[in-house]
Amino acid sequence: MKTHVFSAIRLTVVLLVVCCIVYPAFIWGIAYFTPSHGKGDTVEVNGKTVGYTLIGQSFTQDKYFNGRPSAVGYNAAGSGGSNKGPTNPEYLASVQAAIDTFLIKNPAVKRADIPAELVTASGSGLDPDISPEAADIQVPRIAKVRGISEDKLKALVAQHIQGPLFGLFGPSKVNVLQLNISLDHTK
């Protein structure tokens, strides 16, 4: 018994060195050679950092493409989903309210064209993407607010669609931050 206790303590120290110092230091070393040096890829506009590519931002103004609802208000100091069950009356009322608000803001859109992801909150609360359909249906509103032609905006959305992985696997998506940065540069 005693030998097992002392062996256990010594082996624990050895493995702490291997798993918690050598291994992470090695990964950290490799990270240094990635473009962001492991600090996360940022997006810059005119030399100023406006965000992280992977972290979604809150876009509530009508002149921008809006992202999905977020349970944490897109504050990446934390993260979280709504954790509401599918039959929760309070939750269903909030989805209904999101649909109604969207229809008021986008009178040109038919109710049956609103994609479900645009009125439901993501798991992380930081979802950086929307589907191409969710971007397209916002085009008429933005065209009106900004005075840019709808065709031009549709082309802009099309440019920003990231297709399935290797063209085969998974959904298509649009990064909302990058789309809105390009939008700011479109005249």
């Binding site: 989903g81 479900a116 798991g123 589907s131």
Partner: peptide
Amino acid sequence: MITHMGIDMHSGAMEGKEVRFG
């Protein structure tokens, strides 16, 4: 219960899910 609200459900049950995964 959301289908019942008359919106486009082709992406599925997206509450709590991320667009990049589906």
